[in-house]
Design a binder for these strands. Structure first.
Lengths: 186, 186
DNA sequence: ACAACTTGACCAACTGGTTGGTATAACTGC
DNA sequence: GCAGTTATACCAACCAGTTGGTCAAGTTGT
């Protein structure tokens, strides 16, 4: 993949994260990338292809940072949990506006209308839940570990949603603290 | 408010819930309502006015069913919690496609781009958290009751998000069951 | 008669995608 | 080295259809 194509994906990813897929028009993307439409279509066959590439882009980031970098690391389960919580804060709490979670946003926007989007996003969540299940087993044993992993993932995603609605990260921090108390400080 | 206006709001609410605000075009709404564009503009000054009316519509529904009907009822706190969980399932799990939570969906779509939407939606979540705090105080005491209420609301919203992404309600049921075990079966 | 309701053509701007063409870089054969 | 060829990158006008909103006119109900 060419450098230019990567750049377009990166730039468009930020736009779509901020505004959503449908609300981000091709003209917005072209302007932000500083390219013409013909050039865009040289690299992508459609806006949809770009959208899916953006999901892959974020998926790779999460795979590297969260799955491989934290949950599959050799560190202790307590450490993993704490790092995951810190990562969730860091990833989603930016100095400017609070856009929410790219996967959560796209899941809600696209899941019913585009199966390819839904499946890609679902894979991310499933991987997260799967790896977190292992961490929770190590922390509290096998009993209902998967259910708990699901609950934690849901809680983080829900917290991010509330944060976005509040346009204030305090609620995310509060909820993350509650999760921490339940899994690490006990 | 006239009967016809109510009908338009009701019909459009279902559409926007299913497809999102931006993706639901005025022409979709007109077709579903069986009215002309001029007629639409007789009742609403803009699509945005309709959108806000739809938020009010759902807010009233939640106020009646969830806040007044469950959380502020005279029943025991255990009963209230259980009914809230049942309500959350019932409200969001429909036989057809799983659209997710109207407030969650709109919160993610509109919070950064329309302050009036954000504020209205935020009021719903705040009311919910406020009333749930009282219930949790009655169940487990005052210690960190608000944090816990926030955690439960986040968890339900996150669970709905995962359900939508999975297009399968099993994950919602699993997480609701986990919440139940934490607050009622203990 | 008049307010409320309804109609549907019209509007300018916008939408994602198409197209023919130009510019530039890389390659090939002499 | 250089002209010619090919491949890649880039441009912007064009396209048909769509978008939310406007408007003059007509119909219905009281």
């Amino acid at each position: 993949m060419s450098q230019k194509k990567q750049q377009i994906i990166w730039t468009a990813a930020k736009l779509i994260h901020a505004k959503g897929y449908e609300s981000t028009k091709l003209s917005d993307i072209l302007a932000a990338c500083g390219i013409g439409k013909g050039q865009f279509y040289h690299y992508f066959t459609s806006k949809r292809e770009l959208g899916l590439a953006i999901v892959d882009h974020y998926a790779q980031m999460w795979q590297d940072e969260l799955i491989e970098g934290i949950l599959k690391s050799g560190r202790s389960p307590e450490r993993k949990m704490e790092e995951m919580l810190q990562w969730a804060i860091q990833f989603h709490e930016t100095p400017e506006k609070l856009h929410g979670c790219p996967f959560g946003n796209l899941a809600l926007e696209m899941s019913e209308h585009d199966e390819d989007f839904r499946v890609k996003i679902n894979r991310i969540f499933s991987d997260w839940i799967e790896e977190l299940t292992q961490v929770i087993e190590a922390l509290q044993g096998e009993k209902q570990a998967r259910q708990k992993a699901r609950m934690v993932v849901a809680q983080i995603e829900g917290a991010i949603l509330l944060m976005k609605n509040n346009q204030d990260s305090e609620v995310l921090l509060d909820i993350i603290d509650g999760i921490r108390q339940e899994y690490i400080s006990s």
